[in-house]
Amino acid sequence: MAHVQLLGTGGTIASRGAGDQGAVATDTAADLAQDRYGELTVTARDVLTTGSYRLTPGQLRTIAEAVRDALADPATDGVVVTHGTDTLEETAFLLDLVHDSAKSTVLTGAQQPADSPAPDGPRNVGEAVLAAADERLRGRGALISFAGTVRSARGARKAHTLAADPFAGGVEVAHLAGDELVVTAAPLRRPALPLPPPAFDTTRVEIITAHPGATPDLFDFAVRSGAQAVVLAGSGTGNAGPGFAEAVRRSVGAGCAVVLASRVPWGPVLPVYGNGGGVDLVAAGAVPSGDLNPFQARILAALLIAHGTPVHEFPEAFRPYC
């Protein structure tokens, strides 16, 4: 009989209305695991109970440590993490980066609070439990299960504020056809990185977005005020306007790593343009993020820096994961 551990962290799936004050996370992991799952057994415990928009890097580290401990239990066949959808893509990617177990970790949540007329949390939890327990999904790392689709953490992002399935991107690894889980793909896995150390809690990686008329003033301010890395969310394939290439050069020279990402939802960063575009930004020291969006690129950068990666070694450490 397969056994799954359910770790609760809060989010909409655990929230109930609070009148004019809005919904607040209050339900426990045990509340979310009330339904029976056939021959599967589920045990539940709370790691956190908060909205994911309030999470700190230290709390992400707490979640990662809880998942590690659950996966290390020989009686556990898989782990489910319930989480708010706002920042689920960041937590899922961090868990995937450090995932060194053959067992699956599956994150899920809800778009409707627990006390809504039609809550979607119970169905999502049931599907996530099935995915976490399925031996065919072993070796997939951290996954996201939502509204009948199971996708890789890497490359996934919240693409709609209110839709029943708000996530897009990543690689679909399975989907539900009736009550049957149909496995469709095995995404490429990178070598696992070590768990985030305590330094992760205070590692500052800022995101600066390029737009028409943008100046590098905010970029320079982030570096002066102590940022250890900056992710530049450029336009198109990774471009920015006048002054940014010089700002990148100053940043790297001051010991602050720079990652060049794109504000475009899908597609890789590819240096194509000069005159201050991606070619010049990379020549100044920015590291292209490949197909990582700015938010997941930020998580990778923070993890590497927390482990003490110096700026001159940062490109070599970053590239294998993008």
Score class of each variant (00 low, 15 high):
200 F>K: 05
156 A>L: 03
298 R>I: 03
313 E>Q: 13
16 R>P: 06
309 T>D: 13
269 V>I: 03
144 I>M: 14
143 L>W: 02
9 T>K: 01
258 V>Y: 02
134 D>V: 00
235 S>D: 12
243 G>L: 12
92 A>E: 11
102 A>V: 08
322 C>W: 04
165 D>T: 02
147 A>E: 15
201 D>W: 00
246 E>H: 00
103 K>P: 12
279 V>N: 09
60 L>W: 08
39 E>G: 13
48 L>C: 08
268 P>G: 07
184 T>H: 01
296 Q>Y: 01
139 G>Y: 01
213 G>V: 07
156 A>F: 01
124 N>M: 08
267 G>V: 05
51 G>C: 06
25 A>H: 05
205 V>S: 07
301 A>I: 07
197 P>N: 11
152 S>E: 11
132 A>V: 05
229 A>Y: 02
84 G>Y: 03
120 D>C: 03
41 T>M: 08
78 G>E: 11
322 C>H: 13
183 V>R: 06
211 H>K: 08
203 T>A: 10
77 D>A: 07
91 T>R: 01
305 I>E: 13
37 Y>F: 12
151 R>K: 06
177 A>D: 15
38 G>R: 01
204 R>G: 12
289 S>Y: 00
72 A>Y: 00
237 T>D: 12
32 L>I: 02
276 G>R: 00
114 A>R: 06
291 D>K: 04
99 H>W: 05
315 P>Q: 11
45 R>V: 05
286 A>V: 00
63 I>H: 03
284 A>E: 06
155 G>N: 03
34 Q>R: 15
249 R>C: 09
202 T>V: 07
29 A>R: 01
129 V>L: 11
215 T>L: 08
190 R>V: 13
112 Q>E: 15
33 A>H: 04
212 P>Q: 10
91 T>P: 07
54 R>C: 10
240 A>M: 08
175 H>Q: 10
216 P>T: 01
296 Q>C: 06
117 P>Q: 09
204 R>Y: 03
118 A>K: 02
26 T>K: 07
59 Q>A: 11
55 L>N: 10
205 V>G: 00
190 R>S: 15
7 L>I: 09
315 P>F: 06
147 A>Y: 00
151 R>G: 07
249 R>G: 14
207 I>V: 15
184 T>C: 09
44 A>K: 04
31 D>E: 10
169 G>L: 07
163 A>W: 02
275 N>H: 05
150 V>E: 06
151 R>C: 12
82 T>L: 09
38 G>Q: 04
119 P>M: 09
14 A>W: 06
252 V>S: 07
166 P>Y: 02
304 L>D: 12
7 L>R: 04
68 R>C: 09
143 L>M: 14
190 R>G: 14
103 K>F: 06
235 S>L: 14
112 Q>H: 11
133 A>W: 01
117 P>G: 09
195 L>A: 12
17 G>M: 10
187 P>H: 03
91 T>D: 14
175 H>D: 12
100 D>N: 02
3 H>V: 08
125 V>I: 11
297 A>C: 12
18 A>M: 10
254 A>D: 15
257 A>Q: 11
85 T>R: 03
152 S>Q: 09
124 N>E: 14
197 P>L: 08
318 F>W: 05
276 G>W: 00
65 E>W: 00
253 G>D: 15
140 R>C: 15
277 G>R: 05
287 V>M: 04
198 P>M: 05
103 K>Q: 15
261 A>N: 00
41 T>N: 07
95 L>N: 06
198 P>Y: 01
177 A>S: 14
87 T>A: 14
228 Q>M: 07
